[in-house]
C-alpha cells in the first residue's frame, strides 16, 4: 500500500513538471532580462540569485531594481513589494478550495511557489490538485526562474533581440492556452474573463489603481458580479417552475 502511494505521488509530481514546461519557457526571457538589469543596477551575482531564490515574483523584482536605482529606502521597497504581491492572497484562497487534503507543512512549502502562472495552470486543471503536482509544477518554474536570473547576470546579455521580442508573448500565450478550452466548454468562463479583462483595462489605462490592485479588483468584481447574476437567474428559473 505504501509503495502504491509513493508511486502515485511520483506520477503526480511528474505531471506537475510536465504542466510547468510552458511556464519554464515563458520565465526564461524574463529572468534573463532580470539578471541583466540587476547587473546594471549594481547588484552582485550573489544578490541577484538570492533575490530570485527568496522572492520568486517577477514584477516586484523588476520594480525593486528601479526603486534601488532611484535611491528609495528599503522599507518603502518592501512595502511596495507587499502591495504588488498581495494578489497572491486571492489566488491561494481560490487554490486552497481545490487542493487535496494534506499536512499543512506541505502546503506551506508549495505555497511559496504560487505565482500568477503556477496558480493559473493549477487552477485550470481538471479535478483536485495534489501536493505532489504542486511540487512538480512549482519546482520546474522556480528552477527556470533562478537559473535564468543567474545566467542573465553572467552572460550580461539576453537572447538575440528578435527571439527575445517574440518570446515576450510566451506567458500571455500560455494564459490564452489555459483559458480557451474552458471558454469552449462554458459560456460563464467567457463572461468571467471578458468582464475582468474590461475592468482591468479600465483601471490600468485610467491609472485608477496600481497594476497589483487592479488585477485583484477586476478579478473580484467580475467573479462576484457573475456569481450574483447566476444566482438571480437560477432563482428566476426556480420560480418559473413552481
Amino acid at each position: 500500500m505504501a509503495e502504491l502511494a509513493v508511486n502515485r505521488s511520483a506520477s503526480e509530481f511528474r505531471k506537475g513538471i510536465q504542466a510547468g514546461i510552458s511556464i519554464a519557457i515563458g520565465y526564461a526571457p524574463i529572468a534573463l532580462t532580470f539578471g541583466l538589469l540587476a547587473k546594471t543596477t549594481g547588484l552582485s551575482i550573489g544578490e541577484t540569485v538570492l533575490m530570485s531564490l527568496v522572492v520568486f515574483a517577477g514584477a516586484s523584482q523588476y520594480i525593486s531594481l528601479s526603486l534601488v536605482t532611484l535611491g528609495t529606502g528599503i522599507v518603502e521597497i518592501i512595502l511596495t513589494t507587499f502591495i504588488v504581491n498581495i494578489r497572491h492572497f486571492l489566488m491561494s484562497t481560490a487554490l486552497n478550495e481545490k487542493s487535496e487534503e494534506d499536512h499543512f507543512i506541505n502546503k506551506a512549502i508549495y505555497s511559496f511557489g504560487i505565482t500568477d502562472e503556477t496558480f493559473s495552470v493549477a487552477a485550470m486543471k481538471e479535478g483536485t490538485v495534489t501536493s505532489g503536482y504542486m511540487f512538480g509544477l512549482n519546482l520546474i518554474s522556480y528552477v527556470s526562474w533562478v537559473v535564468c536570473s543567474g545566467i542573465g547576470f553572467l552572460i550580461g546579455a539576453s537572447l538575440p533581440q528578435t527571439l527575445q521580442e517574440s518570446m515576450s508573448v510566451a506567458l500571455y500565450a500560455m494564459f490564452i492556452g489555459l483559458l480557451v478550452p474552458s471558454m469552449k466548454k462554458s459560456i460563464k468562463v467567457v463572461y468571467l474573463a471578458a468582464l475582468a479583462a474590461c475592468f482591468n483595462t479600465i483601471f490600468t489605462l485610467t491609472n485608477a489603481l496600481s497594476s497589483g490592485w487592479a488585477i485583484v479588483a477586476a478579478t473580484l468584481l467580475s467573479a462576484v458580479l457573475v456569481e450574483i447574476i447566476e444566482g438571480l437567474k437560477k432563482k428566476q428559473r426556480g420560480e418559473g417552475h413552481e
Partner: peptide, 29 residues
C-alpha cells in the same frame, strides 16, 4: 481556511476567480 467551510456564495466566487484572473492577466498587458 481548511477549504469547503466557507459560505456557498463565497465558494462560488472563489471558483470563478481562476477564469476571471486569466482575463485580467491577459488584458491589457
Amino acid at each position: 481556511f481548511k477549504g469547503k467551510e466557507l459560505p456557498p456564495f463565497l465558494q462560488g466566487v472563489l471558483k470563478n476567480v481562476p477564469s476571471a484572473t486569466l482575463g485580467a492577466l491577459i488584458f491589457p498587458g
